[in-house]
Amino acid sequence: MATGEPGLLGTQSAVLWDDDNLYIGFWVEEPYPKAKLTERDSIIFNENDIEVFIDGGDCYYEFELNALNTVYEVFFIWRDAYLRGGRFDIPEFDLIDRKSFTFGGDFDRKPESFWWGTNPRGLRWAFLDWDFPGVRSAVHIDGVLNDPSQPSRGWTAEIAFPWTGMEHLANGRSLPPEEGDEWRLFLGRFQKLAVGENEVQAAWCWTPHGKYDTHMPDRFTPIQFSKSELTISYPPGLSL
């Protein structure tokens, strides 16, 4: 994610759409798939996972999924856009009644910048109890989960985001999109790897961010919507 270098393990993703949903699929090579968390909105990024972010201009949405199909999601609003009488000044994003906190960014965990961050735009309000209306996901394990004695090929994930749930993310764009419309998405994967006696969490995504921070919407990949037919090549044995 930081450098744009190739990932150690095979990872592919695809984006499709129709008038009802935005569909995102992942194929994840993982010789020994692992996942333990089963409660919704558990801290999934502490495990191996796939992640989707959708940029909405003055806001963005985060979705994480592990190999047990456990979902974690957060809705972020830039503080400079959270104005009295503005489009986010609604009960759905009430700072007192909802589970919200300020957030500076993944990269800003040094003591001197932890609370304020270093993103030029500043802080975000993060709503942990926000659920994307109607989102659906499914996972298939190509092998055995949580068994280090049995090598596996990996796992696939499929997610459907209804356009009817994108009201706050549309930012003036049509729902569903029109031909040629452009949105910014982050499609990534986080994988724990043993390096000597240490464990690191590698991050791979479509567009490099220049630093280890997913929360950089200006670096998300531009996705242009088209109704033209595409020829898609899948890894051997995979069909989404």
Score class of each variant (00 low, 15 high):
Q224D: 02
L123S: 11
D89M: 03
L230I: 05
P6N: 13
A14F: 04
I54E: 00
G237N: 01
D147Y: 10
R121A: 13
N69V: 04
G56I: 01
D49G: 04
G165D: 07
L83K: 09
E62C: 09
D89F: 02
Y60E: 06
L95V: 01
Y32R: 00
D80K: 12
W17E: 12
G154C: 08
S113A: 13
E5I: 09
A160N: 11
S13H: 14
I96T: 10
Y32H: 00
R219P: 04
D218C: 10
I24F: 01
I141Q: 07
E30V: 00
D58N: 08
F63I: 01
E158R: 15
L185W: 10
Y212G: 08
D41H: 06
D58G: 07
T38A: 14
L169D: 08
G56C: 01
G25T: 04
W27S: 07
G117D: 05
Q12W: 14
G25S: 05
G237P: 02
N46F: 02
G237C: 02
F107Q: 07
P236Q: 01
I159V: 15
D147Q: 08
E62G: 08
A203T: 05
R173C: 04
G4R: 10
E30Q: 11
F53A: 15
G196L: 05
P235K: 00
L22V: 04
W163E: 14
G122V: 09
E64F: 12
F127K: 10
T214G: 14
E5Q: 10
N46L: 05
W125C: 11
